[in-house]
Computed example of a mutant assay.
Amino acid sequence: MIKVLLADDEALVRAGVRAVLAAAPDIEIVAEAVNGREALELARTHRPDVALLDIRMPLLDGLGAAAELRRAVPDVAVVMLTTFSEDEYITKALDGGASGFLLKSGDPYELMAAIRAAHGGAAFLSPQIAHRVIRQVSGGRMSRQSAAKERITVLTPREREVLALVGAGLSNAEIGERLFLVEGTVKAYVSAILGRLGMKNRVQAAVLAYEAGLVPPD
């Protein structure tokens, strides 16, 4: 069972998320918060697998809460849920260590998919957000590709294989099946890759894999 912490200051939104996730037999909301400070306290107490955070909340917003969670409860994967899709929010959320970014106007099934992906060690962006990220990456592609290729030279051939599959959106378990490795070994590879590249999360690594040409543009 995937344990989820839900943080949103709007009661109607929380009720809607509860209704959506009630249809998922493998997902359970273990705690609810109305601001970022409360979310941080509840995360320490309940140790959820995934924290679903609204970006705009009182006392401490979702972006601040995500950064605090990364330090206080590093095993918790963070998925941002918001009505705002401005590039600034996307960049800050991903830089803060979020594993997913969803719009509240998106398909309810995206919510389930994002939680499962984050729990499995993968990343998930709603289609609208993914389009924005790819558009940013595509701008000035030649110079960015050259820099990205130079950056991944510190990786071993096996680490590049793993990075390519991270870029393709595969979870640790799926990468293990593809490369005939146990999931724990894949997790160790991913951690090593992030450390060598100085990156905070899989989304940043996936973007680099795309820029370096390890993942086909489509």
Results as ranks from 00 to 15, higher is better:
G184A: 05
V4L: 14
Q128Y: 02
Y109I: 00
V20F: 11
S85M: 00
A66I: 05
L94H: 01
G36Y: 03
S143P: 01
R158A: 10
R56V: 13
G169Q: 09
A192N: 12
L63T: 06
A43V: 01
A188N: 13
E32Y: 02
L63W: 07
P108L: 05
A205G: 12
L111N: 05
I29S: 13
A173M: 10
R135V: 04
P48H: 08
A188C: 00
G213W: 02
E174D: 14
A72D: 14
K149H: 06
A122I: 09
D9A: 08
G62Y: 08
T153A: 12
V203L: 15
V162G: 07
Q128E: 10
V166Y: 04
L94T: 00
M142P: 06
R47A: 13
A168W: 06
A192C: 02
D26N: 12
A72Q: 15
G140M: 10
R178N: 05
A168D: 13
A93T: 00
A114P: 04
A39L: 06
K187W: 07
T153Q: 15
E159H: 08
A39Q: 05
A72T: 14
A173R: 15
V203K: 05
D26M: 06
P108N: 05
G64V: 08
R196K: 15
K149L: 11
H131M: 06
L163F: 05
R47N: 06
E86S: 03
V203D: 02
L155E: 11
T83Y: 04
M142E: 15
V17A: 12
A192V: 04
I175N: 09
V34Y: 07
R14K: 12
F101A: 00
A67C: 00
M1N: 12
K92V: 02
S171I: 05
G139V: 14
E159W: 01
S126A: 12
L6E: 13
R158I: 02
A209F: 07
G106L: 03
L197W: 09
D75S: 15
G97D: 01
L155S: 07
G97A: 01
I193W: 05
R70K: 14
E41R: 11
A19I: 04
V34K: 14
V207K: 13
L69F: 07
L21E: 08
H119I: 02
G64S: 06
A212Y: 13
D61H: 07
A209T: 09
P48N: 07
M142H: 15
T83M: 13
Y189M: 10
Y89W: 05
N172F: 10
G62M: 09
G195K: 14
A114F: 04
R141Y: 14
L42N: 10
R14P: 00
I129Q: 03
F101Q: 02
Y189R: 08
V79H: 10
D107V: 00
A148E: 12
A43C: 03
Q128G: 04
G16K: 11
K104N: 11
A113C: 00
F180Y: 10
G198Q: 09
G140F: 11
F124L: 01
L170Y: 12
P25N: 09
S143T: 15
R196D: 07
K3T: 14
V182H: 14
K104H: 07
A43H: 04
A93W: 01
A123D: 03
D54L: 00
D61K: 08
I27N: 07
A15I: 01
E28F: 12
N172H: 14
D8G: 08
A22P: 04
V207A: 15
P25E: 12
P157K: 03
K149F: 01
T83C: 02
L60F: 06
S146Y: 12
R178H: 11
